[in-house]
Design a protein around this nucleic acid. Structure first.
Lengths: 228, 228
DNA sequence: TAAAATGTACAACGAGGATTGTATACTCCC
DNA sequence: GGGAGTATACAATCCTCGTTGTACATTTTA
């Protein structure tokens, strides 16, 4: 494990900030701004280093806030993590909902429009660059996160997006553009196939067990695609 | 984060072992056995709790070994982690290679045989139950693991399997069973589609950037599958 | 402008945990 | 049966980090 440059004194990564007194970069405004800054800093820290490695000190420093202020806004590190997850998931979900709406509201050329959709889907979104890394941390930490928090994240993020995509696909099927038996599976398959380049490996999800059905559906799609 | 029951004194999970003196469950045999036991225990601990949370003490306890013995076999926690990764990756890769060989060596009914292959692919392998969790930990820790170790893992595990699958698909194409332009992509798509039920969410992989091509390929497969 | 909120620096506490040294106990081979 | 190699228990070291208390500064608000 390459040792991470100690934070809190001189920031890592970009090195923009070094030995700056907290006062200088203090976000103007009241309660809400501090809170937002902490969430943003926490997102970066948790995403890059994971829950345990991300120290409160480093989060405070990234956020331009004292550690005490963090404890004034969030009861402890664990709850901060959960709120960061929720914060980031909601924001990114919004972006995907916008993409779905933009490319699937009106379809004129099926293949062209889906290609555009696919490209938009995997186009990196620099504003939310850390979110994917955060998701990896969530998946790794899943066993140590309360079930309620996991569920809340799923509902606010991935499930919400998938449902919207499924609805869009169902609509296209009703308009005669597609043949879709199970819009939910179709939406899932779409996201998997489209971001195949992003996935180097496989990961798990013990939340659903319609495994058999999904295997069959996957095989069918695969064979339709490759068996001509 | 649900606090984890402290290990090393009374084991968690199954609770099979509590306050057992190391002597009692000491694996018989010499050097190699100790080493194997440590790798096995490390695998469980790292998979369940992640790199930082898995303590050397807990690994020692699970392995039925003293912490000192761990340090006699592995120079430090970091290297132990890397060796555990390699160990598990190789073992699981073997299992998948066997599956590929078993179901794709001789094909008589395309759909039936691929369905069997797909079911075998996602059939949980209890012997290697922890491996998926370990992979999640690797992905989360990736930024803190030396590039060489990541690459070694990829080569020994996922890439090796994917290449074998690609070779099998290419052979089936040559025999006229399939139409496959790019066996590598086809293999990747197969694994993604087949384990769609296992993946609740998306994950990343900054190792390849033929993103555009893969998007197009994914879309094509998707449309072939769902646009009839 | 002054009280109330809120934020900051600083220091302290306490727990957990990686790593190492050491003296003692086992095991295996000759 | 005894020595070499290995393992064990135990304890000590040293460091990181979450969390809290406190006195002082800043900002907001009325």
């Amino acid at each position: 494990m390459a040792s991470v440059a100690k934070e809190g004194q001189s920031d890592d990564a970009s090195g923009e900030v070094r030995f700056v007194r907290q006062y200088d970069k203090r976000p103007q405004g009241g309660l809400a701004e501090k809170r937002a800054a902490i969430l943003e800093g926490g997102l970066k820290a948790f995403a890059q280093h994971g829950y345990t490695r991300a120290t409160i000190d480093s989060i405070a420093f990234r956020s331009g806030v004292s550690t005490r202020t963090i404890y004034n806004h969030f009861c402890d590190k664990e709850h901060l993590f959960q709120e960061v997850i929720q914060f980031s998931a909601e924001r990114v979900a919004q972006a995907y909902l916008a993409i779905i709406d933009r490319y699937l509201r009106k379809v004129t050329d099926l293949e062209d429009d889906f290609l555009d959709l696919g490209r938009a889907w995997v186009e990196p979104m620099p504003e939310y660059a850390d979110h994917d890394a955060l998701v990896r941390q969530i998946l790794a930490e899943a066993a140590h996160i309360p079930v309620a928090a996991i569920r809340a994240w799923q509902e606010a993020g991935p499930l919400r997006v998938r449902r919207a995509l499924a609805a869009a696909l169902r609509r296209l099927a009703e308009l005669g553009w597609l043949h879709v038996d199970d819009p939910e599976s179709a939406a899932l398959h779409f996201t998997l196939l489209v971001s195949a380049g992003q996935h180097p490996h496989r990961q798990i999800a013990p939340l659903e067990n319609r495994t058999i059905d999904l295997v069959a559906a996957g095989i069918r799609a695969f064979l339709y695609g490759y068996a001509r």
